[in-house]
Design a protein around this nucleic acid. Structure first.
Lengths: 131, 131
DNA sequence: ATAACATATGAACAGTTGTTCATATGTTTG
DNA sequence: CAAACATATGAACAACTGTTCATATGTTAT
């Protein structure tokens, strides 16, 4: 009922110390897991996803992205800052305008895998291997 | 200042209709982009990331996950529901206990790529190709 | 049927997040 | 320098999210 002190697994029915001993050493540090979640949070917003998609095609300045996505310059600028902090985009200044572009290819892979995943939904996958 | 009616790009300095015409047809439907962001939102939480990592090793019942992560059964159950709705995990009942396991391999790929991305941070990458 | 256990779920509350608005910074041109 | 333009940023507010608590559902054994 209350919080378990150590790691008191549920009765002995379903769980075993064996699992614990197998799983725990494989877990990354708390800090890494936190950073990972922070990274995915950045992907977890429609505006930012749209920005990234736009940048798939070509580098672009802030006001263009704003125009393309039909949003205010301020909103885009705020989001670009987050994308930059997460190292998903970088920027380059040319006179008054600042061009943003994708940082590395993990962005493409991650988004690509995500797209695949949500696409499978529509497809078959009716087979449940359990009862 | 106010919202642009159509797609009025920023002056003519930086932007061009060409870009617009190139980018816009490549953009997925709003609905897909929304679903994609929703998917990544699911990855964007430490608890859920930790659950997924635990399930990398082996299927597991709710109370075991709760014990391993030192969280309440309720909290884990709520999160498992989200993971299930996102089709990242599935479940299988065996008597009183319900076992959860990873649904497909996109989970591994996505998390793997995410890990790679945050790891590069520590590494080199000091080269800025622009001024 | 009742008790015991594993899981699921609704309501509520605190903490977080995305946008807007106003304004600041930085750059170019006159 | 001042004006014009592109971008950045701080404050504030509404909307959303994760946990907790209480309780419901489902399963097994007595």
């Amino acid at each position: 009922m209350a919080k378990q002190a150590y790691v008191e697994l549920c009765d002995e029915v379903c769980t075993h110390r064996e699992i614990l001993e197998k799983v725990q050493p494989e877990m990354p540090d708390e800090e890494r897991l936190y950073d990972l979640a922070e990274l995915f949070k950045v992907f977890g917003d429609t505006t930012r996803i749209r920005i990234l998609y736009v940048l798939f095609e070509s580098e672009m300045c802030v006001c263009d992205i704003a125009a393309l996505l039909n949003m205010t310059q301020s909103a885009i600028s705020h989001q670009l800052r987050l994308l930059k902090q997460a190292r998903l985009v970088r920027s380059r200044r040319e006179g008054k305008t600042v061009y943003y572009f994708l940082d590395d290819d993990h962005v493409r892979t991650v988004i690509g895998q995500g797209m695949e995943h949500i696409s499978e939904r529509a497809g078959g996958r009716k087979d449940e291997k359990e009862l």
